[in-house]
Design a protein around this nucleic acid. Structure first.
Length: 273
DNA sequence: TAGAAATGTTTAG
DNA sequence: TAAACCTTTCTAT
């Protein structure tokens, strides 16, 4: 389930579980054998995320360049994780296409299906970060940087929100839900989105994505717009994957259309501004 | 058991 | 704009 919040959550958890300890790395699948052998036996010094990218900084000997692990989960990539205890001192038997396994004395984590799992130099990291827009989950990110791009683009706002060079970390769920929460027509050109509207959207994104990191999932519905009780998959979104269902607020049928090669969902009645 | 879909990006045309 | 790529999971037959 990889939008930006997932990667920031992973970075936080992996820092906690593996940070400061010697890590054993392997690639049972064989597609990252060389990389894993470089990392094996090093100390994970820091795990961090930017947008949808995850980085691990590993220790190095004198005169040696410290290796960095770069992971991008893509559409299907996933980490699974478990603790090692006296009762269960070993990670589970590897099965399926297991790209990377990291193990220390107390925990293990397995990576499958990632688009990118590779070794980076600091220059590679700089190059990558240089083509990303501001990430709402970075403490000092500036939403105005994104607006500078939005305000002079004729592309639909729904397309711009997914463009990682405009904004880093937003994916298909946050884009649809953010547009709904601000009653914005997804096809409105970026240049027609007023500055004060963008300011409100950015502030909302920061709040929603922080909540996403904390909860480990995306919840965008306001309490007053969903039935009482626990939030479930059926009640956590306004429009995402709700094609044909009634809008929670006005009752109109939610529409869908492919935009920029992804399914866009919106309420044709609420989202007219 | 086969096929489609999934919260993504890159490359080719 | 379309196809390719990585893998799992859910649905239909």
């Amino acid at each position: 389930m990889p939008e930006g919040h997932t990667l920031h959550r992973l970075a936080r958890d992996q820092q906690e579980m593996f940070g400061g300890s010697v890590v054993h790395a392997s690639s049972p699948q064989g597609r990252f054998t060389v990389g894993a052998s470089v990392l094996d036996g090093r100390v994970l010094e820091r795990a961090e995320a930017y947008g949808k990218h995850l980085f691990h900084h590993y220790s190095a000997d004198d005169f040696e360049q410290a290796p960095i692990l770069h992971v991008h989960l893509g559409l299907y990539g996933k980490f699974s994780t478990g603790a090692l205890t006296p009762e269960r001192p070993e990670p589970p038997e590897p099965r399926g296409a297991l790209r990377l396994r990291l193990v220390n004395d107390t925990a293990w984590t397995d990576l499958r299906g990632a688009t990118a799992c590779e070794l980076y130099t600091p220059e590679d990291v700089d190059l990558l970060l240089a083509r990303l827009g501001p990430d709402p989950l970075q403490p000092r990110a500036k939403g105005e940087r994104a607006y500078a791009r939005i305000a002079r683009s004729r592309s639909p706002i729904a397309t711009l929100l997914m463009d990682q060079s405009v904004l880093a970390g937003v994916g298909n769920v946050y884009r649809a839900e953010l547009l709904y929460r601000h009653l914005l027509d997804p096809f409105r050109p970026g240049r027609d989105v007023p500055a004060e509207v963008w300011q409100a959207m950015w502030g909302d994104l920061v709040t929603l994505m922080r909540a996403g990191v904390k909860a480990g999932r995306i919840v965008t519905t306001r309490a007053e717009d969903r039935p009482r009780g626990r939030v479930t998959r059926a009640t956590s979104h306004y429009v995402y994957q709700r094609t044909g269902l009634p809008c929670r607020v006005c009752g109109a049928a939610i529409r869908t259309e492919v935009l920029a090669a992804r399914n866009l969902f919106w309420c044709p009645t609420c989202q007219r501004t």
